[in-house]
Simulated assay, not measured.
Amino acid sequence: MIFGSDFVNKGIPVVIIFTLAQFINSITGGVGFTLIMTGKQKIEFYNSIGLFFVNFTLNLILIPSLGCMGAAIATATSVIFSNILRLMQVYIFYKMQPYGINYLKTIVPAIMATVLLLLTQKVNLLPIGQLMLNVFIVLGIFLIYTRFTGVDEDEQYIWNLIKQKFAFRLGA
Rank of each mutant, 00 (worst) to 15 (best):
F81I: 13
S82I: 14
G129P: 08
D154K: 15
L85N: 09
T149H: 04
Y103N: 14
L133C: 11
Q156K: 14
L131W: 05
I128D: 05
F142W: 03
Q156P: 00
I141W: 06
V135D: 04
Y145V: 03
Q130L: 00
V90Q: 01
E155D: 03
Q89Y: 01
V135H: 07
F81K: 00
F136A: 08
L133I: 01
I84D: 01
R147N: 09
G140P: 02
L131D: 00
N83G: 06
V151T: 15
V115L: 01
T120P: 11
D154Q: 15
T106P: 05
T106K: 00
N134H: 03
G140A: 13
Y94S: 12
I107K: 12
T106F: 07
G100T: 06
L116Y: 13
M88N: 15
D152P: 00
E155Q: 04
I162R: 01
G140E: 04
L131P: 08
L87T: 08
K95L: 04
I158V: 08
V108R: 03
L119P: 02
Y145Q: 06
V115Q: 03
L139E: 03
Y94C: 14
I128L: 09
V108P: 13
L143P: 05
Y99K: 10
K105V: 09
M132K: 06
E155A: 08
A113S: 14
G150C: 01
I84Q: 11
N134R: 04
I137D: 10
N134Y: 09
V135C: 01
I92C: 10
K122A: 15
I107W: 00
I101E: 13
P98E: 13
R147W: 02
L133H: 02
Y145S: 12
Q156R: 15
I84T: 13
R86W: 10
L133E: 07
Q121S: 14
W159Q: 03
F142G: 13
F142Y: 15
Q156C: 08
V135N: 10
V90K: 06
L131F: 09
L133Q: 01
Y91K: 15
N83T: 02
V115Y: 08
L139C: 09
N83D: 10
V135E: 02
Y99N: 03
D152E: 07
L161I: 09
Q89T: 01
L143V: 02
N83Q: 06
D154R: 15
Q121K: 04
L139D: 04
M132F: 06
M88S: 15
F136G: 12
I144F: 05
T120S: 06
L125F: 00
V90A: 09
Q121C: 11
R147S: 07
M88Y: 07
L118D: 04
I141L: 01
V138W: 08
T146H: 13
D152A: 08
F148L: 02
I107H: 11
I84Y: 01
R86K: 05
G129A: 05
P109I: 02
W159C: 03
M132L: 00
Y99C: 10
T149N: 08
N134S: 12
D152V: 07
A110F: 09
L126Y: 02
A113G: 03
Y145T: 14
I162D: 13
A113D: 09
P98D: 00
I158N: 00
V135F: 08
M96T: 13
M132V: 05
P98G: 04
Q121H: 01
R147V: 05
